[in-house]
Simulated scan of single mutants.
Amino acid sequence: MTEDRPDALYERLRTFEGRPAATGGTGKDPVNAPMIRHWCEAMGDTNPAYTGPDAIAPPTMLQSWTMGGLSGHTDGTGRSTAYDELLGLLDDAGFRSVVATDCEQEYARPLRPGDTVTFDAVIESVSPRKTTRLGTGHFVTTRMDVRTGGELAGTHRFRILKYAPARRPATPTGPAAPAARRPRPVVNRDNRGFWDGVAEHRLLIQRCTGCGMLRFPWLPGCNTCASPDWDTVEACGSGTVYSYVVMHHPPFPAFDPPYAVALVELAEGVRMISNITGVPYDKVRIGMPVQLEFLRFDDELELPVFRASEA
Rank of each mutant, 00 (worst) to 15 (best):
I273K: 02
I56H: 05
V241G: 00
S238C: 09
P250M: 10
A180Y: 08
S64L: 13
V264T: 04
R296V: 15
L263E: 07
A235E: 05
G25S: 07
V261C: 07
F95T: 06
E17D: 11
A82I: 05
R192C: 04
T141C: 03
D256S: 11
A254T: 15
Y107F: 15
E151F: 11
Q206W: 04
W230G: 00
T51S: 15
V245P: 04
L263Y: 11
G18K: 11
S238M: 08
T224V: 09
H73N: 09
V198A: 01
T171W: 09
E268I: 05
R182P: 06
T155F: 03
V187C: 11
A82G: 02
D4I: 07
A82H: 15
R129H: 05
A55G: 02
R112G: 13
F16H: 04
V261G: 04
G137N: 05
K162V: 12
T23N: 11
Y259P: 11
F252G: 07
E11F: 09
P169E: 07
D299T: 15
P183Y: 07
R182E: 00
E265R: 02
P110C: 08
T142M: 14
P113G: 09
D54A: 12
N47T: 05
N188R: 02
R184F: 04
M144H: 13
I36D: 08
Q105Y: 12
D282T: 14
P220A: 04
M35L: 15
T66D: 13
P6A: 13
G27C: 08
D190T: 12
Q206F: 07
R271D: 04
A22E: 06
I276H: 04
G269D: 02
I273C: 09
D190Q: 11
T116P: 01
T81D: 02
T209C: 03
R189Q: 10
V126H: 05
R271S: 04
N47G: 08
F158L: 12
T224G: 10
L90R: 01
L9P: 10
I56N: 07
W39A: 05
Q105L: 11
D145E: 14
I123A: 00
G239K: 03
G78C: 05
A100D: 15
V198H: 01
G135V: 12
T136V: 08
P228E: 10
T224W: 05
C40Y: 12
P30Y: 06
A176F: 10
D45R: 06
F139T: 00
G212P: 01
R189K: 12
I36F: 07
V98N: 11
A49H: 13
E200H: 10
A93M: 00
R184W: 03
N275F: 06
L111K: 09
D45F: 03
D7Y: 08
E300I: 01
K283T: 12
Y10K: 05
E265L: 01
F95Q: 06
S80C: 14
S97K: 05
G135L: 08
T116Y: 03
P113C: 09
R14C: 01
W195T: 11
